[in-house]
């Protein structure tokens, strides 16, 4: 069985100053880089499959600049000798279509039974590449899986995915197929030191963008035109309920004028009033309406 895992090096922004206001670009110095946490789950799942099915080949593929090799080596170190090949396509694009074209092009040549990739990347938050690849290779896909069982000997899998609020859908999917993995599928391991040392020594096959063969009419379908910082997230404040009488509201405001640094006032009153406030809060924020997700 051949398992292909697509892994991406992502920049994680943790500070509001990530966008350089003078240039309108993201400042990489203000981010940290890592293996996309969803892809990490995909790598882990591949390793786990191999632990059960010995006749199994794992190939890691990434698309990115030279620095992505470090990320690829981290992914390799998770599995050590269980991972057979590492491939880096030397290209970086903000357009998921271009990325998917390149990946599917390479994957088609290698051959595959299962393709695993993360449900989304935490940088561009796109969750498209996996699906694009599946469509380009004309294979079925299930997104956001949280359980993967390969039916023994059969070219079939049983998968589960979340539908929100903990509900899961169990599906049957034939192979070859692509699965994008969601949080909860597994808990990725931490690489051991011998595997890290091994990863440093392993060769990474490099494929240049221009060596990929696809039609000249294929080009990016989207283009990022601007980066900007969102307005600082304002805490959603609770305001005293307008349906209360003026006196009640006044009382509330007076009693609530305690010394507070941030947040809203501390509400006091009878248990009934307070319960009303809480329910109102729930209603206003749509927690009592029907399920959204």
């Amino acid at each position: 069985m051949k398992i292909i895992v697509c892994a991406k090096r992502v920049g994680h922004a943790y500070h509001s100053s990530t966008v350089d206001l003078s240039t309108g670009h993201i400042d990489p110095g203000k981010m940290v880089f890592m293996l996309n946490p969803y892809d990490e789950i995909a790598v882990e799942e591949a390793i786990r499959i191999k632990e059960h099915i010995s006749d199994c080949e794992i190939i890691l593929i990434t698309l990115g600049i030279f620095e992505a090799e470090e990320t690829l080596r981290y992914a390799f170190a998770m599995g050590g000798r269980r991972i057979n090949r590492m491939i880096r396509i030397n290209y970086e694009s903000f357009d998921p279509w271009e990325t998917a074209l390149a990946l599917s092009n390479v994957i088609k040549k290698i051959g595959f039974d299962i393709i695993l990739c993360g449900e989304k990347a935490i940088d561009d938050n796109c969750s498209q590449v996996g699906t694009f690849v599946a469509e380009l290779l004309n294979i079925p896909q299930v997104s956001g899986i949280v359980k993967l069982d390969i039916v023994p000997q059969g070219k079939k899998t049983l998968v589960e995915r979340y539908l929100g609020k903990g509900d899961r859908e169990e599906m049957e999917c034939c192979l070859p197929a692509l699965f994008t993995v969601g949080k909860g599928l597994n808990d990725p391991r931490y690489p051991s030191l011998p595997n890290r040392i091994l990863a440093e020594k392993m060769k990474i096959e490099e494929i240049d963008w221009i060596d990929l063969e696809f039609g000249s009419e294929e080009k990016a379908l989207t283009k990022v035109t601007k980066f900007f910082s969102p307005k600082p997230k304002t805490r959603k404040m609770f305001t005293p309920d307008s349906s209360l009488s003026a006196l009640e509201r006044l009382n509330l405001m007076m009693s609530g004028s305690s010394s507070k640094k941030e947040g809203s006032t501390v509400l006091e009153g009878s248990a009934n009033q307070l319960a009303d406030h809480l329910v109102k809060f729930l209603v206003q924020n749509k927690f009592l309406s029907k399920e959204d997700k």
Partner: peptide, 21 residues
């Protein structure tokens, strides 16, 4: 930790935090 990569599960995040952040 180094050879077996076995430790209390809470530590993985600490290690990754140190490595990444």
């Amino acid at each position: 930790v180094l050879t077996e990569s076995k430790f209390p599960s809470e530590y993985k995040q600490v290690f990754k935090n140190l490595e990444i952040f």
